[in-house]
């Protein structure tokens, strides 16, 4: 063995999974709607929970879900994390915030980014609203929304997160 050359200590061992994703009926309807700038979930006929993005069935009851329900682009932060480690091939530079958000009118969270905020001030129960891309850039994609940003509304108590009507938090307080 040559002394001049470095000993091999490691190898690259990448795994690539290439596949073709076909959206099912529920996801395809959601994507057609978001291309028009509308967030659309589905309501379970049994427990009345609204799911977004819809999966075509209720995870709790097992019932098929068919009724389509438009939800708001205002949401409440259910949980969040401040990402400080760069992820390979991810164009977003840390630190940034990714959060579980429950849209008004929905009962389950989805993941999206929080921006235009002081990261250290972001908190559970905080009210946020979608910042949409320009309409001419809308596609069949959740990133038609660039991110959510804080809005000047009172925090939602933890026990109320995921239970707001589509009319929103202040609308709920007025009821």
């Amino acid at each position: 063995m040559s002394e001049e050359q470095d000993v091999i200590t490691g190898i690259e061992a990448p795994v690539y999974l290439k596949y073709n994703f076909t959206a099912g009926a529920a996801a395809a309807r959601f994507l057609h709607q978001i291309k028009k700038g509308v967030l659309t979930g589905q309501r379970c006929p049994s427990c009345q929970q609204v799911y977004i993005p819809p999966r075509g069935s209720c995870a709790a009851c097992g019932c098929p879900t068919e009724e389509e329900v438009e939800v708001a682009d205002k949401a409440t932060i259910q949980s969040f994390t401040i990402v400080t480690i760069p992820i390979p091939n991810n164009p977003i530079q840390p630190p940034y915030i990714i959060a579980n958000l429950v849209a008004d009118g929905a009962n389950i969270s989805f993941l999206h980014l929080i921006s235009e905020c002081v990261n250290e001030d972001v908190h559970i129960g905080q009210r946020v609203q979608a910042l949409w891309k320009p309409e001419e850039e809308w596609d069949y994609a959740m990133d038609n929304i660039r991110y959510f940003r804080p809005i000047d509304e009172p925090d939602v108590p933890v026990e109320m997160i995921g239970k707001l009507p589509v009319t929103g938090w202040e609308g709920s307080a007025d009821d």
């Binding site: 690259e12 690539y16 596949y19 994703f21 091939n89």
Partner: peptide, 26 residues
């Protein structure tokens, strides 16, 4: 509820692992 147009997209998920091999395999 009408059937929407089928949507498809190709994806590539990459796990860009490096692995240390130890003195014997090295």
């Amino acid at each position: 509820m009408s059937q929407p147009e089928v949507l498809q997209q190709s994806f590539e998920l990459g796990f860009t692992y490096t692995r240390s091999v130890g003195p014997v395999v090295g």
